[in-house]
Design a protein around this nucleic acid. Structure first.
Lengths: 215, 215
DNA sequence: TAGATTGTTAATCGATTAACAATC
DNA sequence: TAGATTGTTAATCGATTAACAATC
């Protein structure tokens, strides 16, 4: 079993494979080949096998992979065999949507607290989860043993929130604010930039298109 | 001016640079070096210069880049010098949040229509934008000259929505549904997977961590 | 001019693809 | 056994980094 230096692209694909396997499993399929996984997830068969090979030997030569078995292996690899407690910072539109988002719960994430500055929001609930004032972040994170924080505040406030979060037991931060953040090395930080994703689209439409049509 | 084969990673960084430049410009800074851009966006100076070099020579040796000038070059490259009309398919939590999301408008995206199946939502408004029934997709997209569609429907419905969208003049699709979608080659498709982003975090916490601590 | 910083080339690093021996 | 498909190695491709000549 080789470890060390697993490409992030591999992890992204592992997540996609696992969800595809869940879907296939619901249809009652028992065995699947790397070629079929590849087909269903838009990658090459070699890529699928290579990605899996980082973590072990999950298949049977000449046969393929057991769907359920491989699914659970992937869930374990992704760390989803345990449930994760998440807090959401910011109860604006995005924070609210993320609190309600079913996709997280489906994968074992549990929202245990929401934080906001607006006095009229505090004490309210979203999807059964209470909205607390920012000042209670340390207390609630400790009480609920939250490991992950999702940042959904305006860009200017994001670093301030991070500075509070580093005082807690939070281990990972998913940042939706379009701002480069600084965290100490023991905290995992990941950025999701909604606008950037639209802009890759417009670049492809505006620029790449102009190449084909001749400037 | 070399063209062809520009890494997608470069486009993502260009978007980040442009926003950082807007921020720096607001502080009144006139000139900036690749090293300062690198510092502010978390990349290497060589990376910054390489990324820019794909598109031309925007700086002055010995001096650096004019902040405003470079900003507008990047905006133009990203296709953001014109405004884009966007429709959002799905007025659930995520669709609602995306309709209200200020980050899109800030970068020149205009939401011109929202679509949903729920009868009680139709005719309502989000942020001043009307919610239409799915049946009127073709009509409204044509009337509003929308070029981009954002998919925020449940995974099972996503491909059906795409099949309707391909009958319209839509040029690009940003998909938030966790499902692999098939589109004809003339349509640009980009996927944003919110759960995958959390799962990269949990992988890093659960798996990479376990490497260091032994096991 | 001397100092600074770009634009670009060459070297390095990493990820993907192709091919095939192992083996069910 | 014959056919199929994995796991893995080697070859290819692409992106990042380092170094430096060009030049303001």
């Amino acid at each position: 079993m080789k470890t060390l230096k697993i490409p992030e692209a591999t992890i992204i694909r592992l997540s996609v494979y696992s969800r595809y396997l869940a879907q296939v499993d619901r249809r009652g399929v028992v065995t699947i080949s790397s070629g079929e996984i590849a087909e269903g997830t838009g990658v090459s068969p070699a890529q699928v096998r290579k990605d899996l090979a980082y973590f072990g030997e999950f298949g049977t030569r000449g046969v393929g992979y057991n769907v359920k078995d491989l699914y659970w292996h992937l869930i374990k690899i992704l760390g989803l065999n345990t449930s994760w407690s998440v807090v959401i910072i910011g109860a604006g539109n995005l924070g609210t949507a993320l609190s309600m988002y079913g996709g997280f719960r489906e994968r074992g994430f549990k929202v245990v607290g929401i934080f906001d500055t607006a006095p009229h929001k505090i004490g309210g609930h979203l999807n059964g989860v209470e909205i607390y004032p920012m000042e209670r972040m340390q207390e609630i994170i400790a009480r609920e043993k939250a490991q992950i924080a999702i940042i959904a505040v305006p860009a200017e406030e994001a670093q301030g929130v991070v500075n509070e979060l580093v005082k807690t037991e939070i281990k990972g931060i998913l940042n939706f604010a379009p701002r480069v953040l600084t965290v100490p090395p023991h905290i995992e930080l990941r950025n999701v930039d909604l606008s950037v994703n639209l802009e890759i689209l417009t670049f492809n439409l505006a620029f790449r298109r102009s190449l084909k049509t001749g400037k």
